[in-house]
Write a protein that binds this DNA or RNA. Sequence first.
DNA 1: CATGAATGAGCATTCATTCAT
DNA 2: TATGAATGAATGCTCATTCAT
Lengths: 228, 228, 228, 228
Amino acid sequence: MARIRTAPRKSPTQQRSRATVDAIVDATARVLVRDGYDALSTNRVAKEAGVSVGSLYQYFPGKEALVAAVMEQHASRMQENIAERMKNAPPAATPEDVATEMIRAMLAAQQAEPRLHRVLVEQVPRIGALRRLHELFGNYELLVEAWLLENSERIEVQDARMAAFVLVAAVEGLVNRATLDRPDLVASGRLEEQILRLVLAYVVPSHVAQASADGRYGGRKRKGPAGG
Amino acid sequence: MARIRTAPRKSPTQQRSRATVDAIVDATARVLVRDGYDALSTNRVAKEAGVSVGSLYQYFPGKEALVAAVMEQHASRMQENIAERMKNAPPAATPEDVATEMIRAMLAAQQAEPRLHRVLVEQVPRIGALRRLHELFGNYELLVEAWLLENSERIEVQDARMAAFVLVAAVEGLVNRATLDRPDLVASGRLEEQILRLVLAYVVPSHVAQASADGRYGGRKRKGPAGG
Amino acid sequence: MARIRTAPRKSPTQQRSRATVDAIVDATARVLVRDGYDALSTNRVAKEAGVSVGSLYQYFPGKEALVAAVMEQHASRMQENIAERMKNAPPAATPEDVATEMIRAMLAAQQAEPRLHRVLVEQVPRIGALRRLHELFGNYELLVEAWLLENSERIEVQDARMAAFVLVAAVEGLVNRATLDRPDLVASGRLEEQILRLVLAYVVPSHVAQASADGRYGGRKRKGPAGG
Amino acid sequence: MARIRTAPRKSPTQQRSRATVDAIVDATARVLVRDGYDALSTNRVAKEAGVSVGSLYQYFPGKEALVAAVMEQHASRMQENIAERMKNAPPAATPEDVATEMIRAMLAAQQAEPRLHRVLVEQVPRIGALRRLHELFGNYELLVEAWLLENSERIEVQDARMAAFVLVAAVEGLVNRATLDRPDLVASGRLEEQILRLVLAYVVPSHVAQASADGRYGGRKRKGPAGG
DNA sequence: CATGAATGAGCATTCATTCAT
DNA sequence: TATGAATGAATGCTCATTCAT
């Protein structure tokens, strides 16, 4: 597993070059979705982009770099989506509201370009390109940690940093698996519900205990009061 | 992305060929760990195994079949480990004990050959080869579902099947991420602790609410009752 | 085009060996018809014959030898057919009858195993194996020459040997082409008619002139005598 | 025996690539003559042409396509030769003259590159590649048919189309055999004489009857009229 | 800067052939 | 003799990459 260059060769300064690079990245995404990672080749991408191979190599050192660029673009857009969403969200009264909003944003971001997202998650881990996505989730960890600290009075965890890691990792895995194997759960909104339960139960079990007893989060209705 | 044959070509009957096949599978695992999935080629594996390409093709129709065989072996060993472990475990008094044991088994299984496991999970494209691993996780889901149903009195979930999916997926993701990025958590046992909290909080929030108040599962010690 | 060994390695003396060899030759013919010359391989023939490759190599040095053996067998059978036919034929009164009988025998021989014959003629010329078939036609030349000499009084050719060559070569080419491209002509019997015309016109044009005028051999009926 | 692509991949536009393609086709012909069809491989041709395999594959999808290109070139040249010859021929007074000219053209065309011609006819399997040659002979059949119809008054055949097939097939076989086994006949001109006799006797037996009696076409001189 | 022809290392795969059992 | 596992040279073919135009 030799280290692979994924950085672009040079940044296009002129406008024409910018257009070329965009065409190449878009073409890469298209080929990725249509033919998969294995069938992707520099020549094919060049043809798809309507550009000569030589031009492609002027900006990208190889196949990996192409995919990395797509990944970068995709991650950026997801990030933008999320930021946008959280900015526009109504002021959250409770921690539960905040969590809900974050989870929704995360799911929505993945649904934006689902086919591309799926290919990237499924086929691209082989090269280091997922790092970018992990960074994104790293950002998440910071957000979550902040959220935990802000609500520290009600939160029943000791190590906020670790808790953030646990939550983000678990949710990331869950979302990816669901995207691949249980799209029905995603579509129906039940996944969102369950993630919320998972997260809140982890950070404020007593709250969920109550809520679950009330029938929220898909918990069973019970007679007596929970806990004890 | 055409369908790919992953089934072995013929089963070796003689002793000599049995050895050949073993050598090939072992070499495949080695190459996979050392060079990664993309760099794996039939010729390279044959050379690594000290066997001619022809012999390799006598038993495996191609690269995918090689990886599938490794996957099969790895999954079988994991399964054996888990079965062994659960057989030898002391009789579990509480559901908590059962969960603890299952999580420990899962972690232990993944730690057995962590580098190979990582490659298999990270790099093997979602072809038929991964099916075996999915089966394994599918088995897990069934185990978990059974556990949930057995303890249905104390369990506060409605849809056991979905809950099992959620739990296995979340834990899988968490374990994988931790294996890669936070081996310290794995080694220190804190990961196990947190997984337990995550799982139990999800299925019996009321219990965790209490336990967390008591300082177990890394929850903060508090005076009064939680929630509000 | 290196010289290729086509001779069998050793003659089977024992009965068991004889059976093995037969099985191999028959399997070769079958594979030849079913899969064609290019797809024929020693391993495949061995499997088809229910014999191990090793055994095959005990009797045949390679692919070419297999095909040569099939060719030999096929040619022998054709020869036998022809001999049989001519022996049983009613005593021929006229040269025309003899020619007719020879041509019929030749055509009949080719129709015996048409699919094998076709493969041999179409695909096998590449190796020297057609030599055997040419020998067969060489025999024909001798037969034809003899026939010409026997009927020298009525025959209007000077060089019987050359005439025999011309006739056999022309008829061979015609029959082969017709077998491949115009099987309808073969089936309808018109080919036979035309070959007869071609042959007789060449050797006794005056006879055919008359016959043609009478409407035989597919000639046009005319009033007055032809030519001038 | 699956369908095989024999069409070239792309037409070279630049001058450089035109040269490459030419080099490849010429090398193919050379290898064909030197080593035979079975020993011809893309790599060998590339080496012979002093070109990389990659370049070869840029223009030809495989072995068959290479041979098809050679075949095409050869057939074209033959056709040109024939056309040229017939254009320059003195106006033919009699059908006999026309036939003579056609046979001479055919013989001459085959003698142009006899070794290549032999390989093509003998060894190239009856794939699409031979189609081109069939076309050529098909053209011949049309020419002959036209000739027969033009001279229908003197011609003693009913079905001109079938007669054309018979003649071309017979003459083709005869010429091929003679080229291989009796070059002396070709060189001395006796073959031409005999083909003429064969053809004319078939189509106008009465004429040949007379001519043969006069000693033309290698017929024996006789006193009285032949036949009876 | 753009082009695309040319390169050739490298991979998948087959198959004639040998030889220990 | 028979077996069939093992061999490895040879083939078809792709594709990342370069470079003259």
